[in-house]
């Protein structure tokens, strides 16, 4: 049940951020759906991938591809969709626990959670890097005119 709630709230969270980033019109729908997609892929990944970091990695790869494709459809920079859609993956909870352990002087837990937070951030970053580089190559091969407009 918690997963259903999470998927719905991931959608709402991304929707909220797309409004804060002043995305207009049909693009809001794409961005919010991207946020939902990110979390669905993350949860599905849990079924066959070992390790949480791989889930974050795969999920951010797919979301980046998704935003690159949306960017081509809507003829607008990919950052527009990526920024809003990546939000549910951002390690807010891990960051919070890291700092609360630091404040309370529980240094063992702090070190553990700190490295956990950093590895999530690195996993997401690596996913974005891989997917962006691949889609650069892919779209560059497709056509020069397209490439100029939206990369």
């Amino acid at each position: 049940m918690i997963h259903t709630y999470q998927i719905i709230t991931a959608f709402m969270g991304s929707l909220g951020f797309s409004i804060l980033f002043n995305i207009k019109g049909r693009k809001i729908g794409y961005a919010a759906f991207g946020g939902m997609l990110a979390w669905v892929i993350y949860l599905l990944g849990g079924l066959w991938l070992s390790g949480e970091m791989m889930q974050y990695f795969i999920s951010s790869i797919i979301v980046t591809f998704y935003s690159e494709i949306c960017a081509r459809i809507e003829k607008t920079p990919a950052t527009t969709f990526l920024t809003a859609a990546i939000i549910p993956l951002v390690p807010g909870r891990a960051l919070y626990y890291t700092m609360s352990y630091a404040i309370n002087g529980r240094f063992g837990d702090f070190a553990e959670y700190g490295s956990y937070t950093v590895s999530i951030a690195v996993a997401i970053a690596a996913g974005i890097m891989v997917a962006s580089s691949l889609s650069r190559v892919f779209f560059a091969l497709r056509s020069y005119e397209f490439r100029h407009h939206s990369m």
Binding site: F17, T79, T83, V90, G92, L95, M129, S132, S133
Partner: peptide, 25 residues
Amino acid sequence: DKIAIGNIMLLIPGLALTNSIRDII
């Protein structure tokens, strides 16, 4: 913790992080 995390998500620098990675690539 849960209330605080909900609000931290509003302050977290998501855009800076995403753009910094895209810049580096």
